[in-house]
């Protein structure tokens, strides 16, 4: 199975009024890491994906999805 990983981090950040830098600080990564995840340039590790999901209080599938189209 192959597909592009899409994410809704930007949407959740907007809902929580959180900048990339602030989210990066919470997760424990650099802002560059968050921004490259958002634009789909970097696929995060499971740990980072789970930390992001946990921070927003949603299942990881709500934030990350595999675009199989």
């Amino acid at each position: 199975m192959s597909g592009e990983l899409t994410n809704r981090i930007r949407v959740y950040r907007a809902e929580h009024r959180l900048s990339q830098g602030a989210l990066a600080g919470i997760i424990g990564v650099s802002r560059k890491t968050i921004s490259t995840i958002e634009v789909g340039k970097f696929v995060p590790s499971t740990v980072i994906a789970l930390k992001i999901a946990r921070h927003f209080g949603v299942p990881v599938e709500d934030i990350f999805a595999l675009n199989t189209e």
């Binding site: 997760i27 424990g28 990564v29 650099s30 560059k32 890491t33 970097f42």
Partner: peptide, 11 residues
């Protein structure tokens, strides 16, 4: 230092 190896630059 736990997450330092998981970031974009480290990758």
């Amino acid at each position: 230092c736990k997450n330092e190896s998981e970031g974009f630059i480290a990758d």
